[in-house]
Amino acid sequence: MNVDKDIWAGLFFMVLAMLGLWIGADYAFGTPARMGAGFLPKVLCWALLGLGALVTLIGVVKRGEPMEAWAWGELVAILDAVLLFAAALEVLGLEAAILGAVLIGGTGAPSPNHFERVCLGFAAFFLTLFLLPGFAVKIGGGSIQMVIGLLAVAACAAAILSHARRVPFGVLAERVLLGVGLGIVCIIVFVDGLGLTMKSVIVTDAWNVLKDAVIRPVIRLIIR
């Protein structure tokens, strides 16, 4: 990638401006006395488009420093962790979300040490339980959920420790696998009636399908 960083920046500005003009095309421009919702967006986007073009031009003419290489592994680990936290929080509960974020985010560490990471998971978990009890309750749990969460942590810890002995971490596929495993633990643990508030119909539907097709049979199997 030997393209000047100014060119990248300029292109970004231009793309953003064009996106704004395109989406905002039907916003009313209005009159000076009664400006419409589209007045500022349009003025702004045209200005941004011009500046973006200028920045790109400078980049082409000046041939300054090229953009540094991106640290994709670290980027994916951190953003993954935040996204997982967002996805897991309202569906699986705070404990699962915290664990997931710490474990996934931890794979971005320069020299991953699994024992440390699991300890961190525990620490984060206890911190939430004891320092923010109000918060934990707000997310929709009670003492039962706390016990469950604790056991879930233990399970994950054991799983990871046994797992980590053989294969090194850091590969994206494994990260995903870990996330899925974590998800399954928590879904099974948080079956019906344990303070689930589904975010939207889509999630609820997905949940119902999963429940009827997978979890109910499994439960029946175990009870039998």
């Binding site: 915290i98 974020a101 710490v102 985010g105 961190l120």
Partner: peptide
Amino acid sequence: FPAILLFCCI
């Protein structure tokens, strides 16, 4: 950094 990350998220 995991602690900072969690701080951000929560």
